[in-house]
């Protein structure tokens, strides 16, 4: 299968991620059902939903960490290979897509045997072919941007959760992605550290990064999201501006979910 590059600007709204009737199952368990979602360049989309609703799975499909069985998924102009395609290759397409898509995980997943600066530098050297000095200069600049220049030579184990997550964001940014995926980036953090990570994300949104965020921080969603997507049992039930979703949800289930998460 060939990845077909769509010249930018040919689609009406400059869509960067296009998902059409996507289906995904883990064995007999149908996780994502006929998902349709287009995301525009520079847009910030927050995905909410109960745990197990498939929201993490959806964003993991966008950089190919999960395979999908049917439907269409185009990322940054490249077609994401389906499960069948990946049985016989698809590695090249995957690598091309991943170069443009950064991902931040709930558990940070920093490389524990490398200092913060090396965590940020390694992929630049291996994927972008940068020289070690150049990669480290870039890494230092990015660590400064997330406020961790002074911690550049510490190992992840010596950093707090919030600091680790900021290093993880810097590590993704080092690949100069066009899209950033955030999979519950603050869920594993102590409450007092949530703010520092959200600040970095807020800054990214302001700079015009395309961001797809799975989060339970509803206040943050309301503040930065251009659109909020509510997923329920693997289906997109509702899409709208934060005001529409949070203040006038049309579906009964959205209302129930929001009343549960917003009560406390």
């Amino acid at each position: 299968m060939n990845a077909i590059q769509i010249p930018s600007g040919t689609t009406s709204r400059d869509v960067i991620v296009s998902i059409a009737s996507l289906n995904k199952s883990f064995g007999a368990f149908h996780v994502l059902k006929e998902v349709d979602l287009d995301i525009g360049r520079g847009e910030v989309v927050v995905i909410i939903g109960a745990s197990g609703s498939g929201k993490s799975t959806l964003i993991r499909c966008i950089n190919g960490l999960e395979v999908y069985q049917s439907g269409h998924l185009t990322v940054d102009g490249f077609n994401m290979p389906t499960e069948a395609d990946r049985k016989y290759g698809g590695e090249k397409e995957l690598a091309r897509i991943r170069k443009g898509v950064g991902m931040v995980f709930q558990q940070f997943n920093l490389f524990p045997h490398m200092s913060a600066i090396d965590n940020v530098a390694i992929a630049q050297m291996r994927v972008r072919g940068r020289k070690p000095e150049e990669a480290r200069t870039v890494a230092l600049r990015l660590l400064e941007r997330v406020g961790l220049r002074d911690h550049a030579h510490k190992l992840p184990g010596q950093l707090s959760g919030g600091q680790q997550q900021r290093v993880a964001i810097a590590r993704s940014l080092a690949m100069e992605p066009h899209i950033m995926l955030f999979d519950e980036p603050t869920s594993a953090l102590d409450p007092e550290m949530v703010g520092e990570v959200l600040d970095v994300m807020r800054e990214l949104a302001r700079e015009g990064m395309t961001m797809i965020i799975v989060t339970h921080e509803m206040g943050f969603a309301r503040e930065v999201a251009d659109r909020v997507v509510y997923i329920d049992h693997g289906r997109i039930l509702e899409i709208g501006t934060p005001a529409q979703i949070f203040d006038q949800p049309t579906h009964e289930r959205t209302r129930t979910f929001l009343s549960r998460v917003l009560r406390h």
Binding site: A95, R98, M103, F105, Q107, L110, I122, R126, V127, M175
Partner: peptide
Amino acid sequence: GQIEAARSLAMSSWAVNVDI
């Protein structure tokens, strides 16, 4: 998660094995 993080940075299988 280590492998996923490295893969999501577009590192090749070889680099994931050798470096991570």
